[in-house]
Design a protein around this nucleic acid. Structure first.
Lengths: 244, 244
DNA sequence: ACCTGAACACCGTTCAAGT
DNA sequence: ACCTGAACACCGTTCAAGT
C-alpha cells in the first residue's frame, strides 16, 4: 500500500516526447501519411490528447520532429559523417553518399518525400534543412570551392537533391516491381496521346520515361551538378592534401 | 417556350469550374494558404457546398487546378513560348527565362511554393509537372543534348528549379525589405550560436547567408547546372543553326 | 509535474430535395 | 443539368479537473 504513490509512475511505460515521435514515425511508415492523427496517437499510446499536448506543441512540431529523426538516422548511416579526407575523389563520393542516403530514406519512408518538401518551404531554415546543408556543405568545402561560393554551391546541390527526392514516384500500390512497371507503362502511353502541338517534347521522351530508373537517374543528376561545380572551380593544388 | 430552357442559365452569374478556380486563386493570394476552405468559397460565390462539388471533384483537384492555372500564366508570360531558335546562346536564355518566370511567380504567390512541391510529390506526372517539363525540355533539346539524355537532363534542371523555388523564403511578415533583413539577421545570428562540433559548416557560412539575395543565388544555381550540361555535352556543330 | 477526457470550433464531403 | 443546405464523420486543440 505504501508503494502506491512512489510507484505511480511505473504505469505501463512513461510517456515521453521521444516515445511520441517514435510512434508517429511508426504510424507514418505502416498506415501512411494522413493516418497520423492525434486520435491515432492516443490510441497507440493509451492516453488522451492532453497528454500528447503536454509533450509537443502541435501537430506541425511533431511532423518536424519525426522528419528530423528519420533524416538524422539516414545521414548518420553514411560511411563516415565527419571522416578526414584521404584521397582526392573523396569529397565527391561523400556528396554522392549523402544524396543517395536521403534518396533511399525516401524510398523506405514514402511520407518523407512530402515532409522534406513541406519542411523546406514552410520552415526553410529549420533543423531538417540545416542538417542536410551541413552534410552537403562539408564535402563542398573539401572540394576546394572558394569560400565565397560555399553557400551558393551547397544550396544548388541541396535544392537539386530535395527536388529530385520529392518526385521519387510512389506509384500508389505497394511498391512492387510489377506495380511500378504498370505505372510507367500507363504514364508513357498517356504521354504519347498528348496533343503534338502542346507537348512535343513530352511525347518525344515517353519512351525514355518508361525505361528509366529513378535511382540511376538521380545519380546522373548529382553527377551533372558535380560536373558543373568542378568545371567552375577546377581543383587547383591550393588545399593542404597536395604534397606528393 | 423554346427560350425558357436556354435562358435558365442567366442567374446572377453562372457558376463554372473556371470561376471557382479563379476565386480559389484570389483567396490564396489575399488571405493565404489555409484560408482556402469550401466554406470560404461558398461565401464568396454565394452558394452552397453542393454547388462547388458539382463542378470539382474535391479539394485536392481544386488546388491542382489553381496551381496549374497560375503556372500556365507564368510560363506563357515568357518571351516566346515556342519561338524559333535564332542565335547560339538562345536555348540557355530560354531556360533562364522559364526558371525565373517560375521563381517570380512563387514570389508573387507565396502559396505556390508549397503547392509546387506538393504537386511534384503527390502527383509526380500531373498537369503542373508536365507543363514545366515541356517548357524546360524544349530548350534542352535545342541545346544539342543527345536524344538519349533528354529526359535525365531535363529532370535535373526541373528538380533543381523546383527545389530552389520551394525554399524561397516567405519570411512570415508582409514581405517588406526590412522584414527580410530582420529575418536574415536573426537567422544568421542563430547560426553563429550553433554547436561548433555539430555545425561547423553552417557557422562558417552564416555571414554569406545574411548577405545573400535569393533571386541572384537562384540564377547562379541555374547557370551552374547549365555549365554541367554544356560540359558533358559540348555544343558540336551537329545541329542546323551552325553556318557562318 | 504530468495526465485525463469532455468539449469546442472547425474541417471536407455527401445527399435527399428542389428547380 | 445544376444548385440548395442540412447533416455526417471527422479533424486539431483547449482546459478544468484530477493525481
Amino acid at each position: 500500500m505504501a508503494v502506491r504513490t512512489r510507484q505511480s509512475q511505473r504505469r505501463r511505460q512513461v510517456l515521453t516526447r521521444e516515445r511520441i515521435v517514435e510512434t508517429a514515425v511508426e504510424l507514418l511508415d505502416t498506415v501512411g501519411e494522413g493516418a497520423l492523427t492525434v486520435r491515432a496517437l492516443t490510441g497507440r499510446l493509451a492516453t488522451g490528447p492532453g497528454a500528447i499536448y503536454w509533450h509537443i506543441g502541435n501537430m506541425d512540431e511533431l511532423l518536424e520532429a519525426a522528419t528530423d529523426a528519420v533524416v538524422a538516422t539516414a545521414l548518420a548511416t553514411q560511411p563516415a559523417g565527419r571522416a578526414e579526407v584521404t584521397e582526392a575523389g573523396a569529397p565527391q563520393d561523400e556528396i554522392r553518399a549523402v544524396a543517395l542516403g536521403l534518396f533511399d530514406a525516401v524510398t523506405e519512408h514514402p511520407w518523407l518525400a512530402t515532409q522534406l518538401a513541406v519542411q523546406l518551404t514552410r520552415n526553410p531554415w529549420g533543423p531538417v534543412t540545416l542538417r542536410i546543408f551541413e552534410s552537403i556543405g562539408r564535402p563542398v568545402r573539401a572540394l576546394g570551392v572558394p569560400r565565397g561560393d560555399w553557400f551558393a554551391t551547397t544550396s544548388t546541390l541541396v535544392h537539386y537533391i530535395l527536388g529530385a527526392t520529392a518526385q521519387t514516384s510512389q506509384s500508389s500500390g505497394d511498391g512492387s516491381e510489377t506495380d511500378r512497371a504498370e505505372f510507367l507503362d500507363t504514364a508513357s502511353r498517356a504521354w504519347q496521346d498528348l496533343d503534338p502541338d502542346d507537348y512535343p517534347f513530352i511525347r518525344a521522351i515517353a519512351g525514355q520515361m518508361r525505361e528509366h530508373d529513378d535511382r540511376e537517374q538521380f545519380r546522373t543528376g548529382v553527377d551533372l551538378v558535380l560536373t558543373g561545380i568542378t568545371t567552375l572551380h577546377p581543383p587547383t593544388a591550393s588545399r593542404p592534401p597536395a604534397p606528393e
